[in-house]
């Protein structure tokens, strides 16, 4: 089964810039779209309001695949709509981001979709390759580690940050693009209707709990943790300097302690 025969859907959502709050293409979804570009026939699908068509042109401007809106009402649950859509339209691969940039952003969508469509879900995907029997997936783990997985399509793949960068949106292509429209299935999300969003509060820095038995210990703990600015060592021997470095590396768990 050559790759080009696979059908892929990438789920797209509107992002929000973390500092200015402006609407943009959701970064992870753009990466998912980029990955989809090499997986044969693809469609970019957004469950939402057709009023957002202009904003979705930022995906269309990537010139990877057509972009389509599965139109549902404001109060409807996108998972229900998507699930209804995919029960009718088979897709070998459904690519998603791990978390939306707006709203609840619980990251549940791919899992709920997986449950309702009975598809395997793989998270933290950074590479997909087709084999004789299915797909080989590279899963990105923290600190640069990688794991190889295999799965048979159909499946749902959640993109990882370390997947290849999404290409630039070309303004001209975006302006010319037409965003398609499909009628989606509406099922109200009653919980979400009561959500009350506020600006993110600042997380207080955790205080170092001082477990000191003596006043001197407390003093030491207080002074050591507060002394900002690094330690400067002019070592007598290079060995001494190297030891100081190694000590820090061990504390950070980067070099094995023996």
């Amino acid at each position: 089964m050559p790759l080009s025969q696979l059908t892929t859907h990438t789920l797209l959502s509107l992002g929000k810039h973390p500092l200015s709050g402006r609407t943009r293409r959701a970064e992870q979804d753009a990466k998912a779209f980029e990955l989809a570009a090499k997986l044969g026939q693809c469609l970019g699908l957004h469950a939402g309001n057709y009023q957002d068509a202009d904003a979705l042109k930022s995906f269309a401007g990537m010139s990877i695949a057509p972009v389509c809106i599965l139109e549902i009402e404001q109060s409807s649950d996108p998972v229900a709509a998507l699930s209804a859509y995919f029960k009718q339209t088979k897709s070998d691969i459904i690519l998603t981001g791990s978390q939306a940039e707006r709203g609840e952003s619980s990251g549940m969508l791919p899992y709920l979709l997986g449950k309702s469509l009975d598809l395997p879900v793989i998270n933290q995907v950074c590479e997909v390759e087709q084999t004789e029997t299915g797909l080989n997936i590279t899963q990105a783990l923290p600190r640069g580690a990688r794991r190889a997985l295999s799965v048979k399509p159909p499946c749902i793949l959640i993109i990882d940050e370390s997947a290849p960068e999404a290409r630039q949106t070309a303004y001209g292509a975006a302006m010319r693009a037409e965003v398609g429209k499909l009628q989606g299935y509406n099922e109200a999300d009653t919980d979400a209707a009561n959500f009350n969003f506020e600006d993110a509060r600042k997380k207080p820095k955790r205080m170092k709990k001082i477990k000191a038995k003596t006043a001197a210990d407390r003093f030491k703990a207080a002074t050591v943790s507060q002394a900002k600015g690094g330690q400067v060592i002019e070592p007598k021997t290079s060995q001494e300097g190297a030891e100081a470095i190694l000590k820090l590396l061990k504390e950070e768990g980067l070099v094995k302690t023996n």
Partner: peptide, 9 residues
């Protein structure tokens, strides 16, 4: 945290 860390819920 909601909205990818920019809001609270």
């Amino acid at each position: 945290r909601a909205s990818a860390g920019t809001q609270d819920l």
